[in-house]
């Protein structure tokens, strides 16, 4: 069963706002499954994708399920790398304080909560993307 031991770098690029289309929700579903397969998972939020992590989402008026709380489970799934495209935030008049906090608990440091979020420029992002094995864009 040596094949089972392969660990690849999977990157999920989230480009769409959370509720106009189903891409954000179905992307999150693959992300969690990939993490359950013990792969090296990272997430990118770029373009309108940065809206996926907005704090205080309320979907009552559109009759759709608010799934934004699910992102806070990423840390429990051992996903430790979330990259936010700095320019995308700025273009929309947003800053990190508008986004929900995402943390994981470091067992080696008495379960200290550490942030998953990395604010990166587009040029840094392209470098990180270059180092992936599988890039899936939603």
């Amino acid at each position: 069963m040596s094949e089972q031991a392969i660990i690849k770098k999977f990157m999920y690029v989230n480009r769409k706002s959370p509720y106009g289309t189903i891409y954000a929700l179905e992307s999150l579903e693959v992300v969690l499954i990939t993490a359950a397969f013990d792969q090296d998972v990272s997430l990118v939020f770029t373009d309108d994708g940065v809206y996926q992590l907005m704090k205080n989402q309320n979907t009552e008026g559109i009759g759709m399920k608010n799934f934004s709380a699910t992102y806070s489970a990423l840390g429990d799934y051992e996903v430790k790398k979330v990259y936010i495209d700095k320019e995308s935030l700025e273009e929309r008049g947003l800053s990190l304080s508008d986004l929900q906090e995402l943390v994981w608990e470091d067992e080696d440091e008495d379960y200290a909560e550490k942030s998953l979020i990395n604010l990166v420029s587009r040029s840094e992002l392209s470098e990180i993307m270059n180092n992936q094995d599988v890039v899936l864009s939603f």
Partner: peptide
């Protein structure tokens, strides 16, 4: 089948190629 089949395709293939928007 389940999404695990997609993850497996990513793991086992030399390239995973997406067709979409």
């Amino acid at each position: 089948s389940g999404l695990g089949q997609l993850v497996e395709a990513g793991i086992q293939s030399d390239r995973l190629i997406t067709f979409g928007d």
